[in-house]
Write a protein that binds this DNA or RNA. Sequence first.
DNA 1: CAGGCCGTGCTTTTT
DNA 2: GCACGGCCTG
Length: 757
Amino acid sequence: MHPTSETEFPQSAGPEDLTPSQQRVVSHRDGPLLVLAGPGSGKTRVVTRRIAQLVASGVSPHNILAITFTNKAADEMARRVEELLPGSRVWVSTFHRFCARLLRRHAEFVGLKPNYTILDTSDQKTALKAIVRDLDIDAVLFSPARIGYEISNAKNDLIDAESFVRKYDESVADHRTAIVARVYPAYQKWLLDSNAVDFDDLLLHVATLLSENEELRSELSARYRYLLVDEYQDTNRAQYQIVAALGAAHGNVCVTGDPDQSIYGWRGARIENILRFERDFPATTTIRLEENFRSTKAILRSADRLISYNRQRKVKTLVTDNGEGEPVELLIYENEIREAEGIAEQICDAVERGDRDWSDFAVFMRVNALSRQLELALMRRRVPFQVAAGAAFYDRAEIKDVVAYLRLLYNPADRAAFLRVVNTPLRGLGETSRRRLVNWADRQGVTLLDAAARAGEIESLSKRAARGFAAFAETVSSLSLADAGSVEHLLAQALERTGYLRQWQGSSSEKDQERVANVQELLSAARQFDANYGEETSLEGFLEQTALISDTDALDTSRGKVTLMTLHAAKGLEYPVVFILGLEQGLIPHERATRDAGLRELEEERRLLFVGMTRAREELYLTQTEQRSFRGRTLRTIPSDFTPELECSVRRPGRSPSALPTWRPLPATADGTIDAARPLLTTAADLLNGTNAAAKLPIGFSVGSQVRHPRYGVGTVVDVGGFGHRRTVTVAFQADDRRETFVAAKSPLQPIGRPAP
DNA sequence: CAGGCCGTGCTTTTT
DNA sequence: GCACGGCCTG
């Protein structure tokens, strides 16, 4: 069984292996369909079956378009459709890929040429830095990254540069908005001059294209008569508009999703999109898939209990016929080293006993930076593992450099690509010379590459610099796919003629050797691409693939490896045994979500944990440390506000039994009922002795809770103030009427629960 | 112009 | 803790 695919079922066709709800989804033919699918409810399977059913009932595969969020989901769905309908060629694509293709065909409409290139975030930063400098903006105040984030948000909300400026003119805006209003249009001009787009443009341009071009819209509506959109709860406004435009004419729009798994609000996803689908598409059929085929009862109950604390939510029940299974456990360790060791040991033990394979295990964390100690612990034990993300392959400098050569070749106007490689490897073309070249090119209205070819005409340049530019231009123009025959050979030629690898060859440094190896890896990726596409191989296709690839795509699903990844990356996956690291304030929920005390963000954090928990099939472990080093500092931790909301047992591995907390009966759940089903189990709430009231405060210490201080002893919290890392708590200590105020994050205060009634 | 040293500040999450 | 940017030197 694939550890990374959703719960699989017998593949035999026929309705008998479907639940009645699932069957209704599969057999639904025309008109809008909303599928609210809980975790592990067999959603992917049902959707693929529905596609097969459409084809069986006479719909041409050509008329079906399935859109997913990630490449992995698209591949998985395509694989399953292929299984059911060999050779049917239904188009399964991600939003970004679909838009990239469409834009390729209609580039002129938005002022681009068909050979546009796609910028990544680091190119974006380069561009913004140059723009901020040219506009003479006080860059100290707002980093290019910050401005880029604002622009990205605007684009996701369908606000193009002109609208942004107009809105700014009409309103009394703050300083930041004023700066963005200047940078945004300049950035778009820069992109247009570069014949390039960023990720968000792919969506925005296509949304614009569809809303302004009636003819194209009806052509596409006619072509894609049946739309299926997965993870609809994570669509942003731009994606929403694309779906609406494509589906308006026929209304054959089937969206699937789960509001409880909406975890991308921070990058513009609008949970409302799924909540208002029924209003947007009148006469929608809504079907709920609430039966879970993945997890044990214990896991599901704990996750369900957690998510029930969200107020902004459509209530949905999760049920399963699966067995009770092992209780969910909260493992408490002294520090992150013990934590890593504990997890590694537990994994090794299970594998050595023969109970499990390495690939049965996954460890999720809130932020990538947290994986370090665990990686070390796994390495010490020679446990095979893989990390999704971290320094993703296509994010590495050497890979970006080499790809930039190809980009420049394909799109000679690509400024970011030019500036990236013109002096890589070093050609003595420093900052000053480059700026002179750019100025000249802009005055002449030619591309940077053209300017480099004509460097002899640029008077401000030194002889040496002029020669360097000319040589660079010549090298680039000597390369062509037609001559090379394949992308792989083209790459090899580029490497050879630029002498790119020479800078590291012969070096004994491990880093340098890794760089060379990475470039070799890119060569074999190119070879693979050539092989896949044969005669059809193209630079365009290869560049699109490299630009739109993501971290999790590289995950090795079949081989025996423990997998480490962020909670976000875990969506859509499942594993027999799951560990979730760091159930601590500031981590889960993340500090940013607690800082402004915004309920929206806090609830998204809760959903994130919910997503992580519901990935587990048989065993689920959550960990917490008493102190954790992070960003080079060691701090005492505060247990997560979410801990009391879970149903789990608490264990302190490596401690004597006397250190165990006293177990008490379950406290009331959110709706006030007592869960009497498992009286022997305690919730982690008992550790904090938190009642639900205590859990309502957004930060760890709440008024009335008892704490211990190493010097002053036991006391009661009488006041809290401030936010985030500035959060303060005032404690009245029992000994000599002492009252002290502490900065919560920096104090050695330890919560020990409420005084007994 | 390049390379090295030192200080700062940062990080959520990703197509 | 680490990466990046700024500054200084060769």
